[in-house]
Design a protein around this nucleic acid. Structure first.
Lengths: 347, 347
DNA sequence: CCTATTTGTTGGAACGTTCCAAAGATGTCA
DNA sequence: TGACATCTTTGGAACGTTCCAACAAATAGG
């Protein structure tokens, strides 16, 4: 087993050429004679040669073909999809992905980023843990490693970012509910300590005002941004004196929880109460009722992030680029508008 | 930026010692003088030194501290959780995780495994893509790299495996439904082309027979192992002449789909029809009704897999070990047994 | 026949670490 | 004082690759 691995020198010796020639073959150089090439290739196959990228990366200017991906919560479908999107393009560009999960722990995040640097990543995609600050990314960008943050922005960091148009999303959601005749729409779920919350909430508030409806604190039902949180938010909302008739939710998880909570109270989402989510996770279209939601396409976002990163890696230098991806309201059934159902298809 | 990175020699020069001493400090050797150590450490911090693992791994006998993780479908919560479990223990053992998603593509799987080998992983955990054969893992184990397969077994491969006790799981599910008085129980979802299906199905069939109930092909409602598939299975089941009154589902995704399908037909899962899932994904406990299911704890499974792998890595040699993790029926509401639950609604 | 040019091939140095054998200090004992 | 032991430090050789400069052989142009 641990008897020395097969190296280029072994191949060279066996094939009767020099290690330089083997190296040339390895890189598909046009300089080598066709006959030599096939002979070397045959020998490699025969001896079971495995390329040693570590050794190759050692050379001064070598690029490592490793890109680091850090997500804050892999168990959330949204981020898992994001990672899959990244993996797709990264993989087909011949790179490989170092993926780590931080579980929203900023210490963990620091550790994994440090570890990734030691392994010589040539680019980093990170969906930052809560409370991530510019200083956390500073050393990486100082080392000239391109960084792309996704989903959540990091204020003050000179890095590229790809976030969805949160403001426009909730704005559109409110407009739609208003057009269905709702007079009292609440904002359900999430905690007001993140940039994402702020953006989504602002879109909500401005749209309410723009529709000429009264806006007040009593329309906000804060809770954990999870399914369980959605249940809590409904409980909160329904005990009020003048409960809302529709909810714009912080994300799809909350929206599902809101549906659960409504049913537990004998009210059917879509028929008795309008529910709109945010993210368009895969379950959204198969749930009953199918969830009306703001579509974000996490996988596409992952792909875009990876493309942007690869572009920067190849360009050699990384000018910070801030992209907000446009979102789209996907009308299904949970808002109560699903009458004319037959053809609403998503890409 | 790309002006040469800081190396041990730079540190050595700046601190007035030899590179060997710096190396000793790096490894926390007790041989170095306390004063020297602090001076070197200070210099490292000052110059912004980053350890180069690639170079270190180059030495003949070096262990890479990288472990590869390959999953067949990261967008499925089950596997995402599994990956998180692995990450946890791997991370805290000072290793780092190379994670890749194969999307059930065997070609992709071959590629990523090859790529991982080139990066010198010192262990591999894989949840094999469908139709993976022993030969796909052969080169890896031949290279003396410990391999642990999870979730799905690979027949004939001389590697360790951790799979859940599928047979016992569905067996227990049936027993429970029988104890609730069901006389006609169906097996919903999944395609009979995988070992997992076979095991779960066998547990189901044997339990039906053991309960003295008639077993026939008309109790099987095959479909995609997804939420959408669950809806299809219900459609299939309900058009029969003598439809079942309860379902043991291939997995939780199917079970959720079955609930959706039932509702779409005006029947309430838990009250009018018993539903039992398999996996116990996170959503299972918060769904309405909460899903009765066979708990597999994917995260725990990931942790165990990682522990086993690390053990083998440290032991130097890997004796194949086949572990089946025990499962547990978690009784919630969807089976109709939740009578004594405080919040239960009847009409 | 001599010089260029093209086509393949090649040794050796370099990359950043670890590890070994050995060497300087310093102290201890007889 | 000499012989040892202990503590700390140190050059240099590896590890498996890439790349450069050089070279051999064959072809072409004058």
């Amino acid at each position: 087993m641990s008897k020395g691995r097969v190296t280029v020198v072994d191949i060279a010796k066996a094939a009767g050429v020099s290690k330089s020639t083997v190296s040339l073959v390895l890189q598909g150089s046009p300089l080598v004679n066709e006959g030599t090439r096939t002979k070397v290739n045959a020998t490699m196959r025969e001896l079971g040669y495995v390329y040693n990228r570590g050794a190759a990366n050692l050379r001064a200017n070598a690029k490592s073909k490793i890109i680091g991906v850090v997500v804050n919560d892999l168990t959330n479908t949204f981020f898992a999809e994001l990672a899959v999107g990244v993996d797709m393009v990264v993989q087909s560009a011949g790179f490989v992905q170092f993926l780590s999960n931080t579980s929203e722990s900023i210490d963990r995040q620091r550790e994994v980023i440090a570890s990734m640097r030691e392994h010589g990543i040539s680019g980093l995609i990170v969906s930052p843990a809560r409370a991530t600050e510019a200083v956390d990314l500073k050393p990486v960008v100082a080392a000239g490693i391109p960084v792309v943050v996704v989903v959540r922005n990091v204020p003050g960091a000179k890095v590229s970012s790809i976030v969805s148009d949160n403001y426009a999303g909730t704005h559109a959601a409110v407009e739609h509910l208003v057009s269905l005749g709702h007079q009292r729409i609440g904002f359900f779920g999430g905690f007001p300590d993140t940039a994402v919350f702020e953006e989504r909430f602002n879109g909500f508030r401005d749209a309410i005002v723009a529709a000429g409806q009264p806006f007040g604190e009593d329309l906000i039902f804060s809770s954990a941004p999870s399914r369980a949180g959605g249940v809590d938010a409904v409980a909160l909302a329904m005990q009020g004196i003048n409960p809302p008739t529709a909810a714009v939710c912080f994300n799809d998880a909350v929206a599902f929880g809101v549906c659960d909570g409504l049913r537990a109270r004998g009210r059917e989402p879509g028929r008795d109460f309008g529910v709109v989510g945010f993210d368009d996770v895969i379950e959204a279209k198969t749930a009953v009722p199918a969830l009306t939601t703001v579509s974000v396409d996490p996988q596409g976002m992952g792909r875009r992030a990876a493309q942007l990163l690869l572009k920067q890696i190849n360009a050699g230098k990384a000018d910070a680029e801030a992209i907000t991806t446009s979102v789209r309201l996907v009308v299904r059934e949970s808002c109560g508008a699903g009458q004319n159902k037959p053809g609403r298809k998503t890409a």
